[in-house]
Amino acid sequence: MSLDGKIALVTGATRGIGKAIALSLGEQGATVIGTATSENGATTITDFLKEANIKGRGIVLNVTDADAIDNVVSTIENEFGAPEILVNNAGITRDNLLMRMKDEEWDDIINTNLTPIFKLSKRCLRAMTKARWGRIITITSVVGAMGNAGQTNYAAAKAGVIGFSKSLAREVGARGITVNTVAPGFIDTDMTSSLPEAHKTAMLEHVPVKRLGEPEEIAAAVSYLASVNAGYVTGETLHVNGGMYMS
């Protein structure tokens, strides 16, 4: 299969979009290491990978801990080999109107959704430049492109990863490494299930496809960008949103 022999690191892989990405890359032959914030989460990942006959395992990583990032990547290098596919998926929300937003709510988002992209990419790049092949794919959001009231922090981080990815794409393009983002719209995950029903109905009015997206539909976009066939696509944001926003 197209990703045979490749090692993929997927952050935040316990559930939702991250889980779908881990399974999709694994189905294409990659060895998948999925990160979770807890031991329980890591075990969940190990179990679902095993059940799907995918090589790899779950591993605990708090992406806001720089030392932990270094250690986890070293562990993966020793156990499986250096990751040539990095999927930055881990992310959180701390929604609030700006006038009420606390410093912690801002900082949590930047520290979890933006800064780890820099640290993980930097840590994984050395092996990718040596291999003259690599894929860095970061999950951004439609909110990073169109904005959303109550999510100034989230939108800033998500727009940030797009600018980061475009710049890094320019730096490492000549090394066979592509750097892209995937921007989900309104996807049926735990992150969106907590939204009030009225809010969901109102949002769907703006989605021509008239339904929530499935995590697997995001995973399909990530798998495409990870594939050998996507080597000429870099610095791009692939929007998967049912037509809610057309760039």
Binding site: R126, T129, K130, E171, V172, A174, R175
Partner: peptide
């Protein structure tokens, strides 16, 4: 060499 080449060389 370009700037990235020199970084790789030092590594």
């Amino acid at each position: 060499a370009d700037s990235l080449d020199t970084v790789e060389l030092v590594m």
